[in-house]
Design a protein around this nucleic acid. Structure first.
Length: 229
DNA sequence: TACCAGGAGAAAA
DNA sequence: TTTTCTCATGGT
């Protein structure tokens, strides 16, 4: 069971270290949705190239993506990897959004109904659905990604093999439903995982396991004073 | 050259 | 029901 005080202490330390993150890196909720699919098992840099391709050609809207042929879409998102698969997934998501009546209509649905509906779309799994719910639709849903799992495992707060839904539920119950907190917390975890390494010259940029582990371990000793949120 | 990166679904065991 | 395989590019 996750402890609220430890979670809040970790949040405070992350925020003090990195400051506000202003997530998700996108201009519109629809762009968040597209990015959430494109980033599946893919680095964000590659996703940015793919989104840039769509943006340049004016395809970054529901009507335009709906019209775009799936093979052409695959061509434009090629840099993000798995392009054939992701093109189909994006088309599925667009079809779903249109059938739901567009982004505006989604606001009339409660979060659980919306989440179940999103999960029924082929290609939208728990993490992608929660990215969309939190960052595009501003619902109080905590995103459990590999970074979250890895950090909390290294801090001995979880074993790491917990079911996705169990972990999400524990986070949400411990922290209380707060969209802004969930937004910032998850963004900070990703920021922490990607922090620049200042140890080895050969690893001056990007993700560095050495630096990451050390930084994570620096969070470990939660003294009694640090447990105060 | 080999490995990794903000998963998900289908197939196999 | 659980585990394994497949999808693929770009950067290090």
């Amino acid at each position: 069971m996750l402890d609220r005080n430890r979670l809040m202490a970790l949040y405070t330390r992350l925020k003090n270290s990195y400051g506000p993150q202003y997530w998700w890196p996108a201009k519109t909720p629809f762009e968040v949705m597209v990015g959430a699919v494109l980033t599946q098992n893919t680095s964000w840099k590659n996703v940015e190239i793919a989104i840039g391709n769509l943006c340049e050609r004016g395809y970054l809207s529901l009507p335009m993506l709906r019209k775009l042929d799936v093979d052409k879409l695959a061509h434009h998102i090629r840099p993000s990897g798995y392009f054939n698969l992701k093109a189909r997934r994006l088309k599925n998501l667009c079809q779903w959004l249109e059938e739901m009546g567009g982004l505006e209509k989604l606001s009339t649905l409660d979060t659980n109904t919306l989440r179940d509906s999103l999960l029924s779309v082929n290609g939208i799994g728990p993490e992608t659905a929660d990215d969309i719910l939190l960052y595009a639709l501003e619902r109080p849903v905590f995103v459990i990604d590999s970074y979250t799992r890895r950090l909390l495992t290294r801090l001995n707060m979880i074993t790491g093999d917990e079911d996705y839904e169990v972990l999400r539920s524990e986070f949400e119950n411990a922290l209380g439903a707060c969209t802004q907190l969930f937004n910032e917390y998850h963004a900070l975890i990703v920021r922490h995982a990607k922090q620049k390494c200042n140890i080895g010259e050969a690893e001056s940029e990007g993700h560095c396991k050495h630096c990451y582990v050390e930084a994570a371990e620096n969070f470990v000793p939660f003294s009694s004073s640090a447990n105060v949120a």
